[in-house]
Design a binder for these strands. Structure first.
Length: 200
DNA sequence: CTGGGGATCGAG
DNA sequence: TCGATCCCCAGG
């Protein structure tokens, strides 16, 4: 299968569909020295905008933090959480529907030594098996908030396409406060992949 | 201005 | 199970 970089129209579609189709794609950050740091996306979560109590734009909230959610699909939304971590999202649909896909885990593919320098763990499966872990491994921080994901230095390539039966759905992690939405099966991951995040 | 809480992680 | 660590944002 030929590797290509999806245009913004790929991201303008229904958010749950994008969340599923991002599985198997490759997230790439090109470092300042030109080296590629990348991993295969093995876990995602869909956040469905103004009617989704777990989404930062629930009720049409538009603040300094969430303004990237109101960009067109295909931009990044990077936010700071718990006083020390970043999380990386791909914005979907249009500026009128502020929805996004949280990238929750990667299987490291390129630049593993670079990742190990940034992360104080040795096991490969600990490098990027969580939303904040992968941001640290790929050096994604607020400077990349609002970035277009069809351009350097951070972009997404198509890679492998998982078979539908390899994709498992489950409730999202860490959103118990969100009422009914806490039970919506909007977390998608590759069944049995060791780089999927651990949940408690 | 204030303060309660968070789409997490890793040590113990 | 819990602490780290600080920004966000609703409410007054």
């Amino acid at each position: 299968m030929a590797i290509k970089i999806p245009s913004l129209s790929f991201y303008a579609r229904e958010t749950t569909l994008v969340a599923r189709e991002l599985l198997g794609c490759r997230l790439v950050h090109v470092a300042e020295d030109g080296a590629r740091i990348s991993g295969r996306i093995v876990e995602t979560e869909a956040y469905l905008g103004v009617t989704d109590k777990a989404c930062h734009t629930f009720g049409n909230r538009k603040t300094e933090r969430t303004k990237s959610m109101y960009l067109d699909g295909g931009h990044s939304y990077v936010y700071f959480i718990y006083g020390m971590h970043f999380c990386f999202n791909v914005v979907t649909r249009t500026s009128a529907e502020p929805e996004a896909v949280l990238i929750r885990a990667l299987e490291p593919l390129e630049g593993l030594e670079y990742m190990r320098e940034r992360r104080s763990v040795s096991r490969e499966r600990d490098l990027a098996s969580g939303p904040a872990k992968l941001c640290e491994a790929l050096a994604i921080d607020r400077r990349l908030d609002g970035h277009r994901l069809d351009q350097l230095p951070l972009f997404i390539e198509t890679d492998t396409t998982p078979r539908p039966q390899e994709i498992e759905a489950a409730p999202r992690v860490g959103v118990a406060y969100a009422g009914d939405a806490a039970f919506w099966p909007l977390r998608f991951f590759l069944r049995g992949n060791p780089h999927v995040s651990k949940t408690k």
